[in-house]
Design a protein around this nucleic acid. Structure first.
Lengths: 124, 124
DNA sequence: TCCTTTGTATCCACTTTGGATATAACGAGG
DNA sequence: CCTCGTTATATCCAAAGTGGATACAAAGGA
């Protein structure tokens, strides 16, 4: 029995913060501080992921098997012993993909309702 | 003083449920039950907005001036006295638009990270 | 009449979040 | 070497948001 979602089955739903963390990891940011910076940058400061939410979310994701800590050093970075690096597991990736699909459906509806400057397919 | 956000200034951020409700209203669904059905339909049953969250969210949005109750009957519907109809205010619309923009930014990042089957601009 | 569906409302327990606080290693400058 | 600002992780508390059960009642068809 795992905390949520079977490792081989369907991934559990992601919280908003969980999705943001997964997105940052998928974008090549491996450690906490980098994740915070990335999210702030992508959303232009609008969505701020504070340390409380961030580290709690990381542990939860790890406990659920969506994320795992890595030991391999990202060479290019000067090796900071304080850093803890993570990567998405297969399950975590599937969870993020699913969440993205759902958000996409909502945004399509938003476009249809005239709430979004349709960067999405509006025609046809 | 208003609960959150000035009526003329910047709208307050929407909760996930708040965005869904606003989206449903913008899509022409005026009352609670219809909103629930719409969200379930759009997300293909994945995101379920239960009655607890729904009605609580509606009152909160109303208290914050993002939504207002309407008395005008949507003719075409057989007039059901039980229904309470709502519409988005200007402030509410701006809040929803902003939220859509933010989600859009996150989804763009998700596309860039290979998490989404890019329905969005990937080319160029 | 009876039963199902539509419709709104409220309650409780749980999860999630935001923000403050603490602690410490890193790196640059003096 | 010492100090200071930044990077970095961790934990705590109070507040906010959510999910689901429960309740109640009107509408409408059989």
């Amino acid at each position: 029995m795992y905390a949520r979602g079977m490792p081989d089955g369907n991934p559990p739903p992601l919280t908003p913060a969980g999705f943001q963390v997964a997105l940052a990891l998928a974008s090549g940011h491996a450690h906490g501080y980098g994740i915070m910076a990335f999210i702030a940058e992508v959303t232009d400061g609008a969505a701020q992921l504070g340390p409380g939410t961030l580290y709690r979310t990381l542990s939860r994701l790890a406990a659920d098997g969506l994320v795992e800590e890595t030991t391999d050093i990202t060479d290019g970075a000067p090796h900071d012993a304080r850093r803890r690096n993570y990567r998405l597991t297969g399950l975590g990736r599937r969870a993020a993909e699913r969440e993205a699909r759902q958000l996409s459906a909502l945004l399509d509806a938003a476009s249809a309702a005239g709430l979004a400057d349709t960067g999405r397919a509006e025609s046809a």
